[in-house]
Amino acid sequence: MTLVDATPDQLAEHPGWVRVCALTDLEVERGRAALLGSTQLALFLLRDGHVHAVSNLDPYSDAHVISRGIVGTRQDAPSVASPMYKQVFDLRTGICMDTQGKDARSLRVWPATVSAGDVYVRWDAGA
């Protein structure tokens, strides 16, 4: 789940939080890729201020393109459509909501939060 506005001391209690970029580096309802070690993440900033972090690797094409997909909603779920073969994923859980007739595959997700204008991702779960 995504936390919004965690305080700096909440972050300090979790040494696993890593600062990735400034909130202003993100564009509302559009993705940006980020690189942590050799892992590619896709960050999404929604209209309500939530930031979501999912894997940039599209499990259907094996290309790192999720950050370049179209952001929207499916029912109540915030979603991103892979630009390659148009599978749609729930940004909160990474679960594929429209497999386009393929087997279900989901995106890895990481907890993400915004604190004092910066975007953090929790990275202790093992990259």
């Binding site: 564009e27 509302v28 309802e29 559009r30 094409s61 290309a63 790192h64 393109v65 370049r68 997909g69 179209i70 952001v71 630009p83 390659m84």
Partner: peptide, 18 residues
């Protein structure tokens, strides 16, 4: 800009490897 498919978004054609 946020409405565009990746092709229009970066004004180029996406290939299979990204």
């Amino acid at each position: 800009a946020t409405l565009q498919d990746t092709n229009d978004h970066v004004m180029a054609n996406l290939q299979k490897d990204g």
